[in-house]
Design a protein around this nucleic acid. Structure first.
Lengths: 359, 359
DNA sequence: GCCCCCTGTGGAAACGTTTCCACCAATGGG
DNA sequence: CCCATTGGTGGAAACGTTTCCACAGGGGGC
């Protein structure tokens, strides 16, 4: 049939009241076998399906959860979103997705919209969890929510990588490989609390390991022509032996830029990334990086929201230090102790060609 | 305030009827300056926002569009989804996203759910556009929709790569490089009409170029241990010089598997992919592939749906042959004419190291 | 034989909007 | 002076559900 049969149509065709139809279809309350039969026949004939809109109005619940992330072009977010979406689907919830493109205004509007749509909960990765208009709105409405990738300000729920600790671990790894002078490369430093936390963790880690404070290079564009930035950066800091990039894409772009500048990676410059996207294993040299589990984080955050809605006990959160691990790779090369002129000795093969596999 | 103020609360506080509040806030119909003032003050005091649920029930419209894709872990779909989502956002529509994980049952359920949610339109990438229960449902409800990546069965709207023509182009490229014996590697052959169309196009292209009919290798898992499959495949077809993989991920996995089998790519085996994901440019050798514009396809499909809803004229669709192009890469190496034993001459450098740049 | 309770049923209210319509006052033209 | 129009306003219906309540009939316990 063409247009949307309603419960009234079904009732009329079955020759009963709407209440009976509702009871039969929802299996709530009694109904005679014969009536049940008639109702089901009518439903079948009319191809009837309940309107969720009517239901939502009545039940004050939409079985919909909003999800706001910067962009799903980044596989980290894509994986997390998909993980959450699966959890929602299995629980009978749908997901409204909005990508902010890292824009705080879009972020605020998105959250406002989701609130107006009466979503039952929201899953948020905001630009800055310390001052987010949208987050404030969510709080004031007491809407079930969970932060994702953002570090929670106070006792709030969040599923995040331990950015600070992970970045400190990167400093440890640089130190273990005798690097003293490193740089930190950040995209969107101002608009991302994650990048800032990674920077702070890295600075602390460098200090702890008696390394020089890392030089900071901030880029704002999407880094196609990272080459010019890198040239200037290395010119200003000629003694750098390693760069920690705030995410894997940036790290890969840096490797390519270095190649354009005829700088050998890792022989002349080591690179470490953050996120652990699969691609890092496919490139040459393979990318040393912090590996995270975005899908699990997304799923966990999704479950948290569901438990908030249902009042059930929330899922166990992994301890801050088990949400990441360091993955060795050819892009990080050890320097000889107390010298940085020559880097022939490799703890990890700079190639992932198995014909050269050493381990 | 804690819980959701309604229009009645506003009316009461402003000392007027609900109709007046509605008129003021929607700028529909007259209202005195003083009343306008009072209403706005009340809205401000109560932090009032319209409930979209109430609105939807009344207007029979939800300003929501459903989107069903196999998975956003694949950047092709992720980009397309994001492109569509942006179009929707700019038009004041939100997007419900469901990933099917390539499962037809989930696909059917997803579409059913979206219909029940009264979405104003749907954007679909189905497993098989020829026989899709969900698609049938959408058609019978006359719900505005557009297919994405699927070839439309008849006069229906779809935004797709010209899979058939693109695959034929790949055959041309193999032929131009003197390959005669090739294989086609497909994931989920049974569950994806795209893979089938690419296969058919490739078969036709091979025939047109007087090449041997391609050998077909079908894998069903997500291809971590493609190595065993590849070993068997090459054993059964020892004269293969090139493999066309039905998507880039599969192509990259094939390259890695070949490496595990000590088979040099491209010297001993050429690989061509499909999709043109960015990663293909980062690997070594760079991946020869069909480049597509998923983001544009997603945006176009999104606009098509909006125009269907609004009755405006639909966006121009690019001609079937301009939706893709071939990207040369080091993974496809020319063979000497009339011989396949030695492949020293490279039309494209097998490395993307700029120090070896020849062009 | 009476009352109570249980099963089966339908009417109607409520959810939050928009919009049609009716009403009132004021104003202007005849 | 009266009538028609216009601007400003509120009541109420409608959208599609769920659920409370009332009601009818029947069976069983006393």
């Amino acid at each position: 049939m063409g247009q949307a049969a309603t419960i009234k149509d079904v009732a009329q065709r079955a020759g009963c009241g709407v209440a009976t139809v509702s009871r039969v279809l929802n299996n709530t309350g009694p109904a005679s076998a014969e009536m049940r039969e008639r109702v089901l026949a009518a439903v079948d004939a009319l191809d009837f399906q309940f309107s969720e809109v009517g239901r939502s109005l009545q039940s004050n619940t939409t079985r919909t959860i909003g999800c706001v992330v910067p962009s799903i072009e980044n596989p980290v977010y894509a994986d997390a979103v998909q993980g959450a979406q699966e959890v929602f689907r299995n629980a009978g919830y749908q997901m409204l997705l909005i990508c902010t493109n890292y824009s705080p205004e879009i972020e605020t509007n998105a959250i406002r919209t989701l609130v107006a749509k009466q979503v039952d909960g929201v899953l948020l990765t905001v630009a800055d969890a310390q001052k987010s208009e949208g987050l404030d709105l969510v709080r004031s409405r007491r809407l079930p929510h969970s932060l994702l990738f953002n570090e929670a300000p106070d006792g709030e729920v969040s599923w995040s990588v331990g950015d600070h600790a992970a970045a400190a671990l990167v400093a440890d790894k640089f130190a273990m490989n005798n690097h003293k002078n490193t740089g930190f490369l950040a995209l969107n430093f101002l608009n991302s609390d994650r990048a800032r936390q990674r920077y702070e963790g890295f600075v602390e880690g460098c200090a702890k390991n008696a390394m020089a404070p890392p030089a900071l290079l901030e880029v704002d564009d999407d880094g196609h022509d990272l080459t010019d930035h890198l040239r200037g950066f290395l010119h200003d800091h000629p003694d750098l032996t390693g760069i920690f990039a705030s995410n894997d894409f940036l790290a890969l772009a840096t490797i390519r830029s270095a190649r354009n500048l005829f700088i050998k990676v890792p022989q002349e410059l080591s690179i470490v990334g953050f996120d652990g996207i699969k691609v890092g294993l496919m490139v040459e040299p393979s990318l040393a990086t912090i590996v995270t589990a975005p899908r699990d984080l997304g799923a966990g955050a999704g479950q948290t929201i569901l438990s908030l809605i249902n009042g059930t006990s929330p899922p166990e959160r992994p301890s801050k230090n088990s949400t990441f691990s360091f993955r060795a790779g050819g892009s990080l090369m050890p320097l000889p102790a107390e010298s940085k002129d020559d880097g022939k000795v490799a703890a990890f093969p700079p190639s992932n060609d198995p014909t050269q596999k050493t381990a």
